[in-house]
């Protein structure tokens, strides 16, 4: 299945958002997630299915002004 992750097209096996983080090795990282521009809580990732063409954002703390 092809989805967009942080703006890049990826072929992934994961069926839900939690599985995607595992597949991309973000499972234990301090990240927040959004699916198609809507926030997905950490606790909701496992029940958030992924579909072809979905846009996923995985964000992490960074410097800011």
């Amino acid at each position: 299945m092809q989805i967009h992750v942080n703006g890049k097209v990826l072929d992934v096996m994961a069926a839900n958002l939690a599985a995607l983080l595992h597949e991309l090795d973000y499972e234990d990282a301090a990240v927040a997630t959004a699916l198609n521009h809507s926030f997905v809580r950490k606790t909701d990732r496992v029940k958030t299915p992924l579909n072809e063409g979905d846009e996923v954002e995985i964000l992490t703390p960074r410097q800011g002004g």
């Binding site: 991309l24 964000l59 703390p61």
Partner: peptide, 16 residues
């Protein structure tokens, strides 16, 4: 601080 896309598995965000 801000949130930005993690890139390339660098985990730079965690160090910050």
């Amino acid at each position: 601080v801000s949130l930005r896309r993690e890139s390339g598995g660098s985990r730079a965000g965690e160090g910050f």
